[in-house]
Design a protein around this nucleic acid. Structure first.
Lengths: 340, 340
DNA sequence: CTGAAAGCGCTAACAC
DNA sequence: GTGTTAGCGCTTTCAG
């Protein structure tokens, strides 16, 4: 017995009505009498009818769903963003389809192509570490396909973007380390190509400059795959430990935990002497050891804002031409306060 | 300019062919000449044609996608399961749609109803803590809709199920604590209604019994929402600390980290005296403090196995009537080994 | 207030 | 080897 759900036709047949009447009744159209509506609705309920969203999509040329592309859902930051996305989307009756790139540009492209080929009405994207060519996204967007970028946004792409104040977050974190008496501050960060990498590096440099500390590029290590491969982090850290440094500012969730794990294992003697400040949205930082001062991004909020914008784009009567980039503030949480 | 992707018709028109020829060429049908195929394929590529999956779904009455319902993607265990699911699904050309219950039975039902109404061809489900009525799932399954349960599985439901050896995982963890000299072992666990709760409780009791330790129900605390609400964990822990105990076995990711966080904050003096063993698939346990011995489930594997079974069900020529429950082994990792 | 009919993009049985 | 046609389930003119 194959699964065979009931259709509008079944209802029409049973009630001796036309499919159009049933359709209208289901959608509570004003042209249908109250009695007929009740009749249809009751029977629909009785036979457990639910409209076939596929058929509806085909007809209306939209799916009432949006896609979100992130590097990894296991990353707390992204799962929180997704919760924000869902909170808005479900309110407005959109389904959310999640897809992961695992920091691969190729998977990103495949996901975009699949999703945009009419599976979803618009796309929320945080770029992968590996991505450097987004021409295909531009083409898509120029054809009128709604795209909103968040977190890791491209520079020269005219659409809505939502991101954190990465400069300030990095600046504050670095300054926090400086104010605690540190002068040799290392920086472990993501792929050079990402917007967030550049902004956070600038924030780090800004704080150093303000406090008259010379920038030393030997203290800065990039991870091309954002720490997706543990080995990459390990090598960066090993390189850092060739230098002398008394504090480190880390630019990302995966990198922060990666640093903690590897340095704890490999450099157990040194680790307690090095102060740490890092971007992370982990909700268990209070049990991390060594402990760190964290820069926390408003992930849930970011998801909400981005989704609001995307749905606006999708539902806009006429194409939008004026876009803006929204910047949300980060929060610095001193490691001492984590224990309260 | 609205987004208007090209269709099979555009190709047919441009090449002076019929839509069916184009369709056949695209699907590499044997009845089409090599030349025509090449013509079509080349043109399709040129105009960036991709088939409309919606139309295909409507026609074929299937979507080539499967749904997975979990309590929370932020939970490491589930995100690892999802990665396993995707690895198989993508191989077999299925899309994966993820949805979260946040431990709410109502959201679970809504998700199932939405997804099963032809958005996805089958469902992988790990039940929410709150769920106690799955009649609607039985109805669905009896109508021929493919469902595979994993992790938190129902008892009286005849379909494929994939789960860990929860009894043995719990038994080993508890025995580990006993062998380390502990006698008063508390147990913090999930909702009473879940299969995993019962099995792990039995494993805990089994180990106590083997070592002639009396079972004390005051040492066992349940969390109706699996620790979804922090307050719930806090209360359970406060209640436990009314008793005397020198070790604790914790039955779940969220509960394990919840215990660590709350007891560290609220009972900082006592915490180091209490040995901990807990189920968790966190990949950062090595930086947790206090540290704990962990029971790790083969999450990725579980996702793969469950997906394999589900796709078998979906693609089966005739309804399957013989189901089995597959049990995967857990792994006990001594806290001492985490530091290596 | 309701029904008939067309059509969304695709596949496939049936011609030729 | 290719074209014609019907139909998947729904919405929506257009008629009445």
């Amino acid at each position: 017995m194959r699964f065979k759900p009931s259709t509008i036709k079944d209802i029409a047949l049973a009630l001796n009505l036309s499919t159009s009447t049933v359709s209208r009744a289901m959608r509570d159209s004003y042209e249908i009498s109250a009695e007929t509506k009740k009749l249809v609705l009751d029977y629909a309920k009785k036979i457990n009818y639910t409209a076939n969203p596929i058929a509806r999509s085909l007809k209306e040329r939209r799916s009432y769903s949006i896609g979100i592309i992130v590097s990894e859902i296991a990353n707390n930051f992204y799962s929180q963003v997704i919760n924000g996305v869902e909170s808005i989307a479900h309110n407005k009756n959109y389904q959310v389809v999640i897809s992961q790139t695992h920091e691969s540009a190729e998977r990103e492209k495949m996901n975009v192509e699949y999703l945009s080929s009419r599976s979803v009405d618009g796309l929320l994207i945080s770029l992968s570490s590996e991505t450097n060519n987004i021409e295909y996204l531009k083409t898509l967007h120029n054809q009128g396909y709604p795209i909103v970028f968040f977190d890791r946004i491209p520079e020269d792409f005219d659409t809505f973007k939502v991101t954190s104040n990465n400069f300030k977050g990095a600046f504050d974190a670095t300054e926090h380390l400086i104010l605690n008496g540190h002068r040799r501050i290392a920086h472990l960060t993501n792929s050079k190509s990402l917007s967030i990498t550049k902004e956070r590096l600038a924030g780090y440099q800004g704080a150093l400059k303000k406090h008259h500390i010379a920038y030393d590029e030997n203290l800065v290590k990039f991870s091309e795959y954002g720490g997706m491969h543990m080995q990459e982090i390990d090598e960066a850290i090993d390189a850092l430990f060739q230098q002398k440094f008394d504090a480190i500012f880390i630019s990302g969730d995966k990198l922060s935990t990666g640093y903690l794990m590897y340095s704890k294992k490999k450099y157990p003697k040194l680790i307690s002497k090095i102060a740490i400040a890092g971007f992370t949205n982990s909700n268990v930082v209070s049990i991390f050891s060594p402990s760190l001062t964290v820069v926390r991004q408003p992930a849930f909020e970011m998801g909400k804002v981005a989704t609001d914008l995307l749905i606006q784009m999708i539902e806009a009567k006429r194409p939008i031409t004026e876009y803006e980039t929204i910047t949300l503030e980060t929060e610095l949480i001193d490691e001492k306060d984590l224990k309260l």
